[in-house]
């Protein structure tokens, strides 16, 4: 395992980029980065054929460190750029990495339409319930009553669930994992990347520095082990009452269906109408 980690570290990180990275000690982003690299490594995807696009925020800095074709875009817009890349060069494997505010507040419209459109793209959303980079303001996934730098009296709005939103919007593969369940996350990412169509993996992560500290949720270790206690596998959750699920969330594959992929449909139209000599 150690050897494998060394191989991945050597093979997939950008060594000409001056480390250290921007993430705080104990941040869950690094665990997601590790999972993503292991999944790509396991799938044997050539580095030249992988494009990773991100938006703006702590999680989106991930693209800086990994040795693929990387695209650090504007806030909330990663999926729009990814759509252009994928349609222009369909042979590329396109993955986006976004945060909760990035993907579902400023980028919410792009997110639901990418799910509806069903282009072959994987969206990884790291959900730490806050805007960490800008100083801990409330995000669409900040729980009701929580404190943040813009809700010091307690948050008066309600959060929504990213994974369930993705299911409703039409994503063909939706999974939720956590930074505690790293081994499971590797597998979920592999499944998502292999899936034909728009796939979403929501990763519950910790920002102990902003969200955790203001809400007395403890240090990184406490927060991450808290995910272990609150996460319930999808199959088990199905047998539990709403009361039993209070304060908990499901992990695993929430949705896995097959639908025509619009980029492939368009390929067909193009082939039929193309007047160029083949």
């Amino acid at each position: 395992m150690v050897v494998e980690t060394e191989v991945i570290r050597h093979e997939y990180l950008r060594h000409d980029k001056k480390f250290p990275h921007v993430w705080c000690p104990g941040c869950g982003n690094g665990i997601v980065l590790g999972s993503l690299l292991r999944a790509i490594h396991e799938l044997g995807l050539p580095k030249d054929d992988v494009v990773v696009a991100s938006g703006i925020g702590c999680s989106s800095r991930l693209t800086t460190y990994i040795d693929f074709n990387t695209l650090h875009t504007t806030h909330g817009r990663a999926l729009t750029f990814a759509t252009g890349v994928k349609l222009a060069k369909p042979r590329l494997k396109v993955i986006t990495v976004m945060g909760d505010g990035d993907a579902t507040a400023i980028g919410g419209n792009h997110f639901i339409h990418a799910a509806r459109r069903n282009i072959n793209i994987t969206a990884v959303i790291i959900n730490n319930s806050t805007y960490g980079m800008t100083g801990g303001q409330y995000s669409p996934t900040t729980p009701y009553g929580s404190k943040s730098t813009t809700s010091v009296y307690g948050h008066v709005e309600h959060d929504f669930s990213i994974a369930e939103l993705a299911v409703t919007a039409g994503a063909v593969f939706v999974a939720r994992g956590t930074v505690y369940h790293a081994a499971q996350l590797d597998k979920l990412l592999e499944q998502a990347i292999t899936k034909r169509g728009f796939s979403v993996v929501e990763v519950i992560s910790n920002c102990h520095v902003q969200h955790g500290r203001r809400n007395k949720l403890g240090d990184a270790v406490t927060m991450i082990t808290g995910f272990r206690d609150r996460a319930v596998p999808v199959a088990k959750a199905a047998k539990m009452s709403a009361e039993e699920m209070r304060g908990k969330f499901t992990i695993g594959v929430l949705c896995d269906v097959d639908k025509p992929v619009s980029s492939e449909e368009y390929d067909r139209i193009r082939q039929e109408s193309c007047q160029l000599p083949q």
Binding site: L79, T80, F81, T83, G84, A88, K89, H110, Y266, R270
Partner: peptide, 24 residues
């Protein structure tokens, strides 16, 4: 002519998509 047309969800997305395609 072997090209691609897409109607996006807004003009922000349209601009993002053409930049992505050009990068490809």
């Amino acid at each position: 002519v072997g090209g691609t047309f897409i109607q996006m969800e807004d003009e922000i997305a349209s601009m993002g998509a053409i930049i992505g395609a050009s990068l490809a």
